[in-house]
Design a protein around this nucleic acid. Sequence first.
DNA 1: GTAGGGTTAG
Length: 847
Amino acid sequence: MLLSLTFPPKYRHRTTTALPPLLLKLCFSPSTAHQCHSLSAEELTFPTDPDATARLLSNCLSSDRHSDVLSILRRTPPCRAAVFYWNNLIKRSVSLQDQRNALHLFDEMRSLKWIPDEYTYPYVLKACGDLSVLVTGASVHGLALISGFTNSNVFVDNATIAMYGRCGANDKARQLFDEMLKRGVFDTISWNSIISIYVQSGDFRRALRMFEEMVSRGDIMLRADAVSLVNVLPACASAKSWRSGMEMHGYAIRRGLLEDVFVGNAIVDMYAKCGLMDGAKNVFDRMEMKDVVSWNALVTGYSQFGKFDDALGLFERMREKGIELNVVTWSAVIAGYAQRGLGYEALDVFREMIVSRSQPNAVTLVSVLSACAAVGALVQGKETHCYVIKEFLNLKGNDPGDEMMVINGLIDMYAKCKIFGIARAMFNSIEWKDRSVVTWTVMIGGYAQHGEASDALELFCEMVSNKCRIMPNGFTISCALVACARLGALRLGKEIHTYALRNRYEEAMLFISNCLIDMYAKSGDVDAARAVFNNMYHRNAVSWTSIMTGYGLHGRGEEALQIFEGMRKAGLAVDGVTFVVVLYACSHSGMVGKGLDYFNNMRNDFGIVPEVEHYACMVDLLGRAGRLNEAMKLIKDMPMQPNPIIWVALLSGCRLHGNVEIGEHAVNKLLELNFENDGLYTLLSNIYASARRWKDAAKIRLLMKNSGIRKRPGCSWVQGKKGTATFFVGDKSHPMTKEIYNLLDDLIYRIKIMGYVPETSFALHDVDDEEKGDLLLEHSEKLALAYGILTTAPGLPIRITKNLRVCGDCHTAFTYISRIVEHEIILRDSSRFHHFKNGSCSCKGYW
DNA sequence: GTAGGGTTAG
């Protein structure tokens, strides 16, 4: 129909039955001729005059009627002169990012017996490269080879190299490049292509070497141009080789290439990524032509090297100057806030972005979600989820990888807001094949960090099982180790340690090792933690503080302080966190004098102002040592408002030393702060019970009952040969219950002879002492110990973990029992580790 | 041919 409108009327009644001689000559096969004969009546209006066809094609092309061009080509017998029009259609398709269509056009033209020329191949090869279809690309390469274009036309060869590069066949690309070098037929583009391949595949060193070789050849015909620099500068940036970058900067000045805004931008970016912000700023200031990319490069440089204020200043200047902000600018600022944990500020910027009608993309949304995750802003996170559904997901032209990233961001956000139900449902709804390592990792990490450590490990095991066979990355390993640390899952932690060593996680080894230190220390084996620490190539402040915390946890304060001195000698910056750890180690080791010294001198000697956490450590330290009045005085003299942690620390001290008066004070303060939990009431009730104030203890229990607060049940677990056995108070569900209780009876009988007297105040119940002794017998840690003794080979340590603080009576009983069993008993409670051996405990009373 | 993003440790 269209055709009939565009044809000049004089051709209307001509038919194609009799082809003019020229066209006949150019017909390649009878089949095409046959097609010409089988046109419908309407289509018979097609011009038979080749000149008229050429004019018509030219007209259609110049008036952008591309579908008409195609229709005409389909009806025109193949001819060399008109291949140009096919090329044009293919080129257009490629530039419109419709690579599939480009390949279809190529197929169609060949099936119609047209012969592609030296201009066709580069476009088609580019389409193959963009689609990363190696097999198709190689067959196109083969066609070009038979047709005689390969090895004779530098454009086709360059395009072939680029195609192989995009398909990941770097060796093949290099082979072709080397052949071109041998023949002496190459140009700057050939070099740029091969260098670009190395940059894309992350082989920055080789890319830089190739660039140097290119420049040092001194070939007048082969000059590195703006494209070469723009190609290779990101390699300097990624490899952090600012020396090469500076040489390129010099080269750009010598060759007058700095005027190219792309080159200028690439140099600014190179300096910024190498952390040389002054260099970046200098180049930026001297650039005559700047665009939004120049600004963005500088803004992100400042943001990523901790100079976020400078980044924000630039952002403001951009706005003052009326520079049109693009999605990258907005995203960079949002991400900057999010990374610093300033989630609400990030959300404000996002709101502004929407108001200014900038269209957020995947990167923006991911940053916004990470902002929500950082501050646990569930409502805003859900709003963002709605936005994602309405404005982003299933949008035409979305990159599936981008969609996946946003979904990962959503899962992470829900998990960090502790909405595991939604997070897990989203995770489950993703098809197996679509789940990436990151998808698994955000889910595992979410569980691990927010108290669902066993779910984390279950998922981790599923991920690496034969069913899934997903290779965890460094992040995954770290998350799994965090979960092990939480559970004290030494056995699995060790397995993961071996796995990490076997599978070479070099680039993540700092993180993994730091997690390993923490895992070993929190699983009771601080010496293994120390071994990991000693074997590290690189250590950072976290490594030092982790091993210090480990020693602190185990009451090995002297060693912790030695580590602290080592850290200072190694020239590492000491910060507030370091001092929290130092004071913590002192308090768990009863080193009151040392702790006071450090606390009193930290401001003068290290310039660190004590914050509320440091005061909490001091209250804990004095409280554990029974110096409760001093602790009270410290709280009174604090320059800031005491927070619940301070009062809980004081209350624990009161429990340990039976101080009713100060304990009541602490509880009142906690209630004023609306801090209520089961632990608080249990502590107070314990304090009353130990002072034999049964009525008050009963009152508290009644209060708990009436206000619906239930004491979290004590729960202990022990790692046996056949996995982990868990015990609650009075638990009789274990298959070995009979043996366990028999052994306990026997042990208690024997330690009573040695002088053990049940400390009945720890049984909350208001019953006579004989019966209380029985209730004490049923404490979960005692059950776990008996099970441990029954299932552990003599000489090996028994590792028990308790969810709450260990009970005082159990502590005494364990001390006695450690004299008669051939095991070291390592008990981890919610506060610290106790190593019972030969009738003494490592905590030396400071528990 | 340049700029931005998700998951890890004290």
